[in-house]
Each structure stands twice: as structure tokens, then as C-alpha cells.
Deep mutational scan, measured.
Amino acid sequence: HNLTITQGKLFFHYNPKLCLSEIHKMEEVSGTKGRQERNDIALKTNGDQASCENELLKFSYIRTSFDKILLRWEPYWPPDFRDLLGFMLFYKEAPYQNVTEFDGQDACGSNSWTVVDIDPPLRSNDPKSQNHPGWLMRGLKPWTQYAIFVKTLVTFSDERRTYGAKSDIIYVQTDATNPSVPLDPISVSNSSSQIILKWKPPSDPNGNITHYLVFWERQAEDSELFELDYCLKGLKLPSRTWSPPFESEDSQKHNQSEYEDSAGECCSCPKTDSQILKELEESSFRKTFEDYLHNVVFVPRKTSSGTGAEDPRPSRKRRSLGDVGNVTVAVPTVAAFPNTSSTSVPTSPEEHRPFEKVVNKESLVISGLRHFTGYRIELQACNQDTPEERCSVAAYVSARTMPEAKADDIVGPVTHEIFENNVVHLMWQEPKEPNGLIVLYEVSYRRYGDEELHLCVSRKHFALERGCRLRGLSPGNYSVRIRATSLAGNGSWTEPTYFYVTDYLDVPSNIA
């Protein structure tokens, strides 16, 4: 807008934040220059609390790290170098490059900038070799853009010569660093050979998330399962459950009422301010606690030095998902009996873990797994792929695949051998790939016309006998059925096997 004052003059007093240069501009645009008398524009009460600059400061050096910015700028000295009290560095987070010096300023003089007072450097006698002032900004957020400017702080001049310097606002972004852990990993099994893994992005990506790394490792069953005799009275049979499938998407929606109208769909109840505040506090606490764990609990591995020492970490090797089922080394339970199943799973520490690289999504279907087997899954978020990966501390989750139908069934015939004193040795093959492992066998036998009897055969007993022995049988026709019990439950009964026990007292003698 054009402003013209045809008559009258300007009068400025007691404006401590208004620089004289701005008042002189007002004289020019209003056409009143030359009308004012000496005392109409006070030299001592206008701009006496402001830094009124008329020179431009330029930054000469900028260096960044993930949490620091090192700045240096060209030296500046007023005509009387004693008038320079120091520099004021202003900075704040700036997602967009549209910041002005006066953003967030209120009537009390406060604003949204963080201000650092910096002492002037030592003055050199040689004007050509003056030290460049600077400042190291610490405690910054990774991968965050900051708006920065600097200006001088000078003393009051009796001659009211307006001098000083100020830089333009520059924008500097800190470097990326390792992201925080992925949030809320959930693993479920939808079949006997697959596990579905879902997660949420890290709360602090500290860069642009480029991919996720998912490692999985087959877990050995508890050692007590191999040692305890679950045929003993009072000892509860062990059981394991597989990871249940995901709930429906509708039930997972946030901010939804727990109660549904019987007449149909209901609208979600909005969260109160107290609920939102509580969630923010919980989120802040979780982030602080995660940072504490990362800094205190997890110790970084030592990389190899120039002395030739090897990095103890196993090298990563990509495998196809079809090879995942046989990740671990199978060892027989008892070496003397080769027909026992290889369900003991000690994992070799030198073995390469299978892994998958996930790009542009937060889910993965891990296939080719062994049925009813526990897996430990390790999830890392990465925001750099080359020249070397920059990934987060791992988040861990466990899951067990679903049982395989008929995996616990005894394959092959049940054979028998009759000894003296009416002892019958029953023999059968253990299931080759049971659900988890076989903890015991149930032997059901009966003599024709009598009630059915049951015998429990422990895992250890089966390994020693290759089956079991029935003792003290009365003469007669017998039928026997056997079924295995694994961590997933009972298998199917075998087809009945028949044998006849004679009275050993009636056996004919070869003595003449």
C-alpha cells in the first residue's frame, strides 16, 4: 500500500525493539523526510534493546553428524571492536523451508527459537588472519532439518551509529543413524509349514526405512522333555500350542467401542483428552525405555581390526524358502538304536541362519518350516543398504507352526516275539517326523474274553527296548493296539495285532 503524509511529521519514542533503520525507511515511504526535528525521533529510546544489523554474515563451514552440527561463519568486528559482546545463534526444527525470524513471537518477546549466546573469538592483530567464530550444536535429532541463523550482539553506541551483522536463515539436516526397533511384532501360524509375521514401523526411523531383515531359527525343545518319565503317576503330560491366527481386521481397528449394538453396526467412541494424553505418555515412556535398553543392555560386537582377528559373527547367506525346513542338525536320541526319531534339535552355532529381506511392506510369510516346531524370529529395521547396512537392534518374537495331521501315527506293522515265561516283546517304529517329539506310547492289549488293559511306555523305555515287553501273560489269544502321544496330543491307534500265548508248562520236552 502507498502511504503519503502531505502535512505533519513523524514522532517515535520509547520503541526499544524498533531499529532506527526501520524508522528511516518509514520517513522515505511516507514522504516526511526532512520535516522531523532532532528530538522527534529519539536516538536513545528507539532500538536500544534490539540488534540492528546492516551487514550480512556468511557461514564459512558446515559439518553434520547424526546428532551434531558444527558451524563456522566469517569474522565480524565493528569499528570499535570492544562493542562486540558476542553472537546469538538461533535454531529450531523446520520440516519445511518457510521459516521466518519472527515465527511464534508474542507480545512478551518470546519466540519459538532456541538461542545460544556465543563469546567472540580472540581478536588477531592481523586483519587478514582473524579467527572464524563458530559453535557445535549438540543433542539434535537424527535425520531432522533445522533452520539456523546467527547475528551479532553489540553494545549501545553513544554516537548512535547503527552497526551489526546478521546471516540469512539456512537449512541444515542432520545425518541418518540406526533406527529404533520395529514396533509390535506379531507372529502367527496359518499352516503346519508357515508363519505369518506382521509389525509396525519404528517410532524413530532416523532416516528413510529402506528394508527390513527377518531372521528365523528353529528352537530346540526343553531338555526336561527328553529326561522326564511322563508315565509316572502324578506327572502331567506336557503340551505345546501353536500360535493362533490373526483376529479379523475389524476387531483390530483402534479407537473402536468394545460393545456392539445388537441391531447392527455401531460407531466408534472418540477417545477423551485424558485417554489420548495417557497414550502419549505411555508411548514416550516406551521410547525412553527402549533407548535405555539399547544403550545399557546391548553391547556392540567388536569388529575385526587390522591384526587379522576374525569377526566372530557368522556370515549372512541367503537361502531359498524351500530350504528352511531342514535348518537344524538332527541327532538321534540314543545312538545305539537307529530307529528312534531325530527330534532332539541342538543347533550348531556355526550354522548360517536363513533370512529374508523385506522391502516396502511390514509383513512376511515364512514358508518351508517344520510342522509343530518353535521358531525364534528376529526382526531388524534398516535405513541404508549400501555401502553397508545400517540397521536397528533386533526385536524378537516366537511362534510355533501348526501340527501336521497323521504325523504322530505309527507307520509300519507292530511285530512281536514270544519268549519263555510268557513274555512277549512288542516292537514298532517311532514316527519319523512327529509333531514336536514323542513323549510316550500307549499300549492297549486284551486277552479274548477279558477286559482291555493299558500300559504306558516312556520315551526312554522305548529307546532301550525298541518297544516294550509284556510279562506274566496268561495263555490265550491276544490283540494289541499302540498309539503315540506327542507334544500336540495323541496320534491314531494302530491296526490290531494278534498273537497267541501258550502255557509254557505244557511245552513238550526233548528229553527222552
Rank of each mutant, 00 (worst) to 15 (best):
Y498V: 07
G306E: 09
T307R: 13
R353S: 12
I482Q: 03
G325H: 09
P354F: 08
S479Q: 06
E378R: 05
P434Q: 06
D385T: 02
P431A: 07
W493T: 01
L321K: 14
V480K: 00
C267P: 07
E404N: 09
A405V: 09
T210I: 15
L321F: 13
W216F: 13
P300F: 14
P205C: 05
S398E: 04
T502K: 07
T272Q: 06
L213T: 15
V345S: 11
T288W: 12
D273L: 09
S284Y: 01
C468D: 01
Q256A: 15
G491S: 08
V397A: 13
Y292C: 01
E310I: 05
E279C: 01
K278A: 14
S304P: 10
T307G: 13
V480R: 01
T241A: 12
E362M: 09
V457H: 03
E465R: 04
E281M: 06
K406M: 10
N208F: 06
E281N: 05
D450K: 06
C231L: 02
S257R: 07
E451S: 15
A394G: 15
D261R: 15
D261G: 07
P434F: 06
L235T: 04
N206S: 06
S284V: 13
H294Y: 05
C391Q: 02
V439N: 05
C269Q: 04
Q380V: 06
N339E: 12
R319N: 10
S223Q: 10
P312S: 12
T415M: 13
E404S: 07
A484V: 05
V327T: 08
Y498H: 12
Y448K: 14
V507M: 14
E452Q: 09
S243H: 12
E290N: 05
R446H: 13
R353L: 13
G472L: 09
E465S: 11
E433S: 13
S486A: 08
N295V: 12
A407P: 02
V423R: 13
D222K: 12
H254E: 04
D222R: 10
T502Q: 06
V359H: 12
C266T: 08
E356G: 13
D385F: 10
E420L: 05
V358G: 10
C391F: 01
N339T: 08
T288N: 13
F285Y: 09
T415K: 15
G449S: 10
R400T: 05
G467L: 03
M402T: 06
T303Q: 10
H371F: 13
K361I: 07
H416A: 05
F462M: 12
I209R: 14
K236T: 06
T347H: 12
V299Q: 12
D250W: 08
S268P: 14
D261N: 12
A335H: 10
E281Q: 12
R319F: 07
D506P: 15
H461E: 05
P245Y: 13
M402G: 03
F289H: 09
C269P: 07
T307K: 13
L470P: 01
H461A: 09
L437I: 08
E451Q: 15
F226D: 04
T347Q: 08
R469L: 08
I482S: 01
G264A: 15
Y212A: 06
T415V: 14
V443C: 02
S458F: 03
R218N: 12
S344R: 14
E350I: 06
H254V: 07
R286P: 06
P314I: 01
E389P: 12
T401H: 00
H416I: 07
V345L: 13
V439L: 10
L213H: 07
N206R: 03
E417F: 07
E433R: 13
Q380C: 10
R218T: 13
G306W: 09
T494A: 03
A220C: 15
S348R: 11
V411C: 10
D503V: 13
L277W: 12
V296W: 08
K233R: 12
S486D: 01
V443Y: 01
D506W: 11
D311Q: 07
S239M: 09
R240L: 09
Q429C: 15
P300I: 06
S274N: 09
Y504D: 13
S486N: 01
D261A: 12
S304K: 15
Y230H: 03
S304F: 15
E404I: 04
F499H: 01
F355D: 03
I438A: 04
P245D: 13
V329L: 08
R471I: 10
N435T: 00
I377G: 04
T401Q: 00
E442C: 12
S283L: 08
V424C: 08
N360S: 09
D323A: 11
V359P: 08
P434R: 02
N339F: 09
A394Y: 13
G325M: 13
G325K: 15
E404H: 13
D250F: 12
S486Y: 01
R400G: 06
T347M: 15
P338A: 09
P508L: 07
T288M: 09
E351F: 06
N360R: 13
R447C: 06
S243C: 05
K233V: 15
V414H: 01
E260L: 10
H371E: 06
P245N: 05
L437K: 09
D503G: 06
R316G: 04
G207L: 02
R469E: 11
C391Y: 15
Q219W: 14
D311V: 00
Y498A: 13
Q219H: 07
K302R: 11
S262V: 12
K278P: 12
F215Y: 10
R390A: 04
D408T: 01
S305R: 11
L369E: 01
W493L: 03
E290P: 05
H371Y: 12
L228H: 02
R400Y: 06
S262P: 12
V507I: 12
P338H: 08
L369G: 02
Y292G: 02
F462Q: 08
S344I: 04
E282I: 13
D311C: 04
S223L: 09
K406W: 11
K432L: 13
L455M: 13
Y396Q: 06
S344K: 07
W242P: 10
T401E: 03
P475G: 10
S223Y: 12
Y230W: 13
K302E: 14
L379I: 09
E389Y: 12
F289E: 07
R318C: 09
Y259T: 13
R471Q: 14
G467Y: 04
E452D: 12
C456T: 02
L369W: 01
A399P: 06
H416P: 10
P387M: 14
S492H: 10
I377M: 09
S398A: 12
G325V: 13
L228Y: 14
L235E: 09
R218W: 04
A405L: 06
G325S: 14
S492K: 01
G325P: 07
F246K: 11
N477G: 10
N383L: 08
V359K: 12
C468M: 12
R446P: 00
K406L: 09
S479E: 12
L453I: 01
D506S: 13
R370E: 15
P312D: 14
E442R: 07
R471L: 08
R370S: 14
S304I: 11
